[in-house]
């Protein structure tokens, strides 16, 4: 018998394994990597009963096709508008689904979010590298041989059977909504820019370009004026740092950023807002707004509160009319029986 797995039939444009990231090795030049949108990662994991930061599949622009290569695989997707289907039939989003052997979950293209997450109950049976399963493509660390997921690949699972209990759903009205403007804290090198340069960043509308990837969000729009040159002695780079190279166009540094760099960094995106920026697809527009450390801390607390309320809304998924009714009925009856038996 083959070990339980989730088979990648079609990874979409880019699919990688990501958890919260690889911490503790930046002093040795190892990038953190990790989920671009931690809220998405948390939501997918919540739905299948995993810890919020368990490794999941991060998909990009399109969700791909995934097949259960085990008796029962409980799986959930997060990411706005990924219109899931099971064996070609539309299924309800914002809930977990238990796939039987050979069943395929497909996530359609979406106009809403650049990134989505696919979590499996129990997680993937992969060996961590330097403490994390996160894939860092540039240094080929983590995931499966440090690379993107490929069609035909079997992702080994920890569980051969979905855990007992019904598939859960959450209340989509409680999903955290993206802010109208991305909040930034000035620094660490805001003094390397003119006052007009800082004003440009805070007042202009920027467009996410197609050169955006897991390393950084390249923006087009008005150029930002440096006060004196654009080379600094290389120093550390924080998540969400907005560096401005010589051409004056800002780049917001994401999960796969280098640990150090030599361009001045005008401001840093508040940690609570960074995942929302990572959802922006090429062509979408972004505006920034100044905050301070206390403001950023407040945003973080508010987001944590929203996630707690979202977790509180988890409940057994309701039946959905669009599913084949006979199969659905049988499924519910069986679930009902097993639940009754499982009752203490």
């Amino acid at each position: 018998m083959t070990p339980p797995a989730l088979r990648c039939i079609d990874p979409g444009p880019l699919a990688t394994i990501q958890d919260r990231g690889r911490f503790g090795w930046q002093r040795f030049g190892v990038s953190v990597a990790g989920a671009m949108d931690p809220v998405g990662l948390a939501v997918a994991n919540l739905l299948v009963g995993n810890p919020w930061d368990a490794a999941a599949i991060e998909v990009t622009l399109q969700g791909g096709v995934w097949e259960a290569d085990a008796d029962a695989v409980r799986i959930a997707a997060a990411g706005a508008g990924f219109a899931p289907t099971v064996d070609g039939r539309p299924v309800e989003p914002h809930r977990a689904h238990t796939l039987r052997h050979g069943q395929r979950l497909a996530l359609g293209p979406t106009a809403d979010s650049a990134r989505g997450y696919l979590a499996v109950a129990g997680g993937f049976d992969l060996a961590p590298v330097l403490g994390s399963l996160s894939t860092h493509l540039r240094s080929r660390l983590g995931g499966i041989d440090g690379g993107p997921l490929r069609a035909g690949q079997a992702l080994p699972l920890r569980l051969a059977e979905a855990p007992e209990g019904q598939d859960l759903a959450l209340d989509p009205s409680l999903l955290p909504a993206p802010p109208a403007r991305i909040r930034v804290v000035p620094g660490p090198q805001d003094d390397a820019f003119t006052d007009e340069g800082i004003e440009t960043l805070l007042s202009a509308t920027y467009t996410v370009t197609s050169e955006t990837d897991r390393m950084g969000c390249r923006l087009s729009g008005p150029t930002i004026a440096h006060a004196r040159g654009y080379n600094i002695i290389s120093d550390g780079i924080a998540p969400g740092s907005i560096q401005v190279p010589g051409a004056g166009l800002p780049i917001v540094l994401f999960a796969d950023r280098q640990t150090t760099g030599g361009y001045p960094k005008i401001a840093t995106v508040a940690s609570a807002d960074l995942g929302f920026l990572a959802r922006c697809r090429p062509g979408s527009t972004v505006r920034f707004e100044r905050t301070d450390l206390a403001g950023a801390a407040g945003l973080r607390q508010a987001l944590a509160g929203q996630l707690r309320r979202l977790a509180g809304s988890l409940a057994p998924a309701r039946a959905m009319a669009s599913l084949d009714s006979a199969r659905l009925l049988a499924h519910n009856l069986v679930d009902g029986v097993t639940d009754a038996l499982a009752e203490p």
């Binding site: 660490p188 998540p239 960094k265 840093t268 940690s271």
Partner: peptide, 12 residues
């Protein structure tokens, strides 16, 4: 002390 957002501090 240069703030690098709400998750990092650069000491120069």
């Amino acid at each position: 002390l240069l703030p690098a957002g709400d998750t990092a501090l650069t000491v120069e």
